Amino acid sequence: MEGSRKTPGRKATLTRKEQAAETRERLKQATIRVLGRIGYRQMRIADVTREAGVAVGLFYHYFADLQAVTSEVLSDYMAEMTAKARKVTPSDDLFETLREQYKILIGHFEEQPGLMRCMLQASEEIPEFGEIWKASNRQWTHSFARRLSEALGPEKLDRKTSLLMAYCLGSMSDGVVHEYYVQQNPDLVGCVDSRDQLAEALATLTYRAVFLANPPREKLGAAAAIAVAPAGQ
């Protein structure tokens, strides 16, 4: 039984409760690695326990099934994503705000492309996580819609139109980043040199869609060529 035998080193100093917490966390980290390598649909409990270095039977002491551990690790990661996004200081400059938010989104795909791929799979197959996923996306989209309305003014952009634009623009950016990091489309990979370039390209296209104009030229760097074509024509 876990905690029944003392071993040299750090383990010997842990209480039974601490050992249990450590084992549970080890299983979660193992799940993250397995999800990243092979995805949710191919993952088996034996894959997770082998990765964690524990017996298969011990898994059920901490989690009911694969859905439970997957839902927990993906929910944790979504909370981490949200926390990072909220650290961006609100700015009156929509272009700068967009660029920083896209950098954060791209950073998550760079760090955990397999986990980001699994979020879409799990949102369709794990009801509990699916609700969390939908609520998070809805919250982000409504927040983006409010930002668009503030940037243009409610007299120019009503609530329904701003929400429609937010969903369209959000789907564009999610799709491009997913295709680059998860699907690794060779055409797209060949067009992008850096995270900053991709973030700036998405920010520029979003800005043009909202204002029918280019961002200020002096703010552009890696993706300045995207603003060469006349906007609003």
Rank of each mutant, 00 (worst) to 15 (best):
A135P: 02
K84W: 14
L188S: 02
C191P: 00
Q101C: 03
V210M: 05
L205R: 04
M116W: 04
S143D: 08
L169M: 09
K134G: 02
E155V: 04
E80W: 10
R138Q: 13
S171A: 15
Y77C: 08
P90M: 09
A209N: 02
V210N: 02
K134Y: 06
A145P: 03
D158N: 14
P90L: 12
A122S: 11
R99F: 10
A203S: 10
C118H: 08
H178I: 04
D76R: 13
E150W: 08
W140V: 12
V189F: 05
S171G: 11
R195L: 15
F129W: 04
A85I: 11
N185S: 09
A79I: 13
T141F: 01
F144T: 06
P127Y: 06
L115I: 14
A201G: 06
Y167A: 13
D158W: 07
E155F: 03
V177T: 09
L198Q: 00
T161I: 07
S173C: 06
N214T: 07
Y167I: 09
Y102E: 10
I106Q: 03
P90Q: 12
L94R: 07
G170Q: 06
D193I: 08
L198G: 03
E155G: 08
H178T: 10
K87Y: 04
E200Y: 07
A83Y: 09
A203P: 01
A122G: 10
A83C: 08
V192P: 00
Q121E: 14
E155S: 14
T82Q: 12
K87Q: 15
G130I: 07
A79Q: 14
A135F: 07
A145M: 05
S123T: 02
Y180M: 11
K156H: 13
L188P: 05
L94P: 02
P127T: 03
T161F: 00
L198I: 11
P186Q: 09
M81G: 06
Q112C: 12
Y77D: 09
S149H: 02
D92Y: 09
Q101V: 04
P113F: 04
Q139Y: 11
E80S: 11
L212R: 12
I126K: 06
Y181W: 13
F211W: 03
R138M: 12
E131C: 05
S91C: 05
G130P: 01
S75T: 15
Y167H: 15
M119W: 00
N137R: 14
G190F: 07
L148P: 00
V210L: 04
D76W: 07
D92R: 09
K103F: 00
N137G: 15
A199K: 00
S136G: 14
R195F: 05
R138K: 13
L202D: 02
L105A: 11
S136V: 06
N214A: 11
K156F: 11
Q112P: 04
A122N: 03
A79E: 10
S173Q: 10
A199Q: 03
L205I: 10
A145L: 07
R138P: 01
R208Q: 06
R146F: 12
Q121F: 01
D193S: 12
L157M: 14
